[in-house]
Structures are given as C-alpha cells and as structure tokens.
Design a protein around this nucleic acid. Sequence first.
DNA 1: CGAGAATAGTTGTTTCGACAACTATTTGCT
DNA 2: AGCAAATAGTTGTCGAAACAACTATTCTCG
Lengths: 166, 166
Amino acid sequence: MDTTWLTKEELAAWVRLAAVLELLPGTLDSQLRRDAELTNFEYYVLAMLSEATDNTLRMTALAALTNATLPRLSHVVRRLEDRGLVERFPCPEDHRATNTRLTPAGWRKVEQSAPGHVATVRKHVIDALTPEQIGQLTEITDAVLQRLDPAGKMTALYRRHDAVES
Amino acid sequence: MDTTWLTKEELAAWVRLAAVLELLPGTLDSQLRRDAELTNFEYYVLAMLSEATDNTLRMTALAALTNATLPRLSHVVRRLEDRGLVERFPCPEDHRATNTRLTPAGWRKVEQSAPGHVATVRKHVIDALTPEQIGQLTEITDAVLQRLDPAGKMTALYRRHDAVES
DNA sequence: CGAGAATAGTTGTTTCGACAACTATTTGCT
DNA sequence: AGCAAATAGTTGTCGAAACAACTATTCTCG
C-alpha cells in the first residue's frame, strides 16, 4: 500500500495543529491546577455534572461526555468523592448502575473556578481569532469530529444550543 | 474582576475544539502503539531527529521542538536508547550537553511507522477538510500559537518550509 | 424459567509524566 | 584567577492513565 504524503499546505496546517494539541492541554491544566487544584479532566467532569439535570449523571453517561474509559472515570470520581465534590449512590432503576451527583461544595468549586478557566480559554484561543475565524473553527472542528466521534457523544449536552447547520 | 463569558458562537467553537483536543491524541496514540509500539510523543522525538542534520540534536533542542521538559525527555530518550532506536553521547564542544542521535534501527522505525501515522492524520483530519479549510486552519492555529508559543519553538524546524505570511 | 451473554462498574498492576532534588560544566564578574 | 550564578542533564518520588481481571446485575431467548 503506497502512502499519500501531505502537501506543503497540508503539512503547514498539521504541524501547527499538532503543536496546539501538545501545548494547549498543558496550559489549561497548569492554570486549573494552580488556581483550583483541579486537573482539566476533573474540571470537565464537574462541569458536565453542573449542566446535567439534578446535577446527576450515570457513570456511563459521564464517561461518554468526557471521553473517558469507565476505569479511568471510576478512579477520578472516587478521588473527587474523597474531596467532597461529588457523591455516588446506586441507581434505583438499575442496580448495576451508579449515579454521580455534584455536592454543594462541588457546585461552589465549579462556580469559583469557571471564571479563571474561561479567562484562559479567551486569552489563548478565542481572543486570538476574528469572529469570522470563530465560525471557520466551528465548521472545521465539526468536520473533524464527524470522523473522530461520529455519534457525537462528547458534544451531546451542547447539541440543543446550536441546532443550526446540519 | 468580572468575567466575560463566551458568546453562543464562541462556545460552539470551543466545545468542539475541546472535544478534538480530547479525542485526537488518543486516536493517534492508539494507532502508533498498535502498529509501531510507539507513543505519539516517542514518534515525534524520532521524527524530529530524522529531520535534523546528521540525525542528531542536543537534549535541550529536542525538548524545545517537542515541548517536553528536560526530565521528561531524559526518561523517554533513555527508554528509546534501551530499545536501540537512539544513542546518546556527550557533546564535544560543551561537556554539560548530551547529543542524541537516531540509530539505523531508529531510522528504519520511523520509515516503517510514518505511512501509518500519516494515514491516520489524513483519515481523521486532512481528508475531512476542503483545501480552503486547510488554509483557514493554518491561519487559525498560527494565531493561537502566537499566544501559546510566542517564540515558535515547537515549529522551528518547519519555519523555513513556508516563509510566506508574516 | 433458567443459562449464557451483555451491561455497569470497581479494583489492581504497570507505565508514563510532573515535580523536586541533585551533579557536573560553563559563564560572568570583579 | 576565582567564586557565584546560570546552564545542561540525570535521577528519584509521587500522582494519574492504560489495560486487564474481576464482581454484580440485567437482558435474551430457547
């Protein structure tokens, strides 16, 4: 099988995207660890719970939203539970399942750390782009996500907000 | 300090970018681990060496190109050395420094694993976009990198290829 | 309705990355 | 020259993620 190498233009885009992929997660992690003692992943777990009805989600649903395996999520949630930010209780309808709910302390944690996180996202991404580029980025990432996540599991909670383009 | 929250359009872009940030590294890692027994980071270390003159770079230079801390790189290079893919030797001009060079086996490893890696990048990113979007993505990531990496360390090896736009 | 398959989650082990502490060489300053 | 500071890298420790193995419910279908 012969390989179709990247053209000059494609390589330019990929090199830069790969750099962003390497740099941005670290930047987000650093800010959250410093200001909120939270990893980026832990923040997203809390954020997803904060947007769910009754601040509650089943482990499987939470795993899909955060692109985590169940083992990984289980460990993370246990640590968050140890810190009093979430609580777990068996699902009444299905005794195999576990529900995870944000505690009041967990909600305050999200409330306190969201501004700093948003400011970081603004500083390093949003404010670097023109409104037109924001739109282009949405379409580009949308196209890529159709390959990476055809079912749209990760963006499920947000689909209702912007049901515009197909 | 009051927070400027994201607009609907900005949120749409950010949610999708965050999802890509979470999904793409795992996809690249899986393919490389499966087909070449290499992590994405290890692959990039070897790739950077393969593009350097004489297949040799100092640890500090390699760390800058891969956005790694020196401790992290030191561990990774030791493992690659154990596997015979690179070799280390003291820099003649500066006895503090260490040079890392790709071995013939390391070069073959890059040669063998590059097609699969490029195919994955094509499948999940490049081929999902129009030529126009490739250009847009280059400009967008370029703008973001000016915030994340003003010195342009990570893309240093590629700067010569595309010295077009400022 | 009962046994095998599928689902939901937890726990344990090994590996990798972040951070801190340390050694060795070179540079800068007076 | 000589000593402090900076540079270059390694090593050790600890926390987190991948992977495999395991338990406990629920579904399916003969």
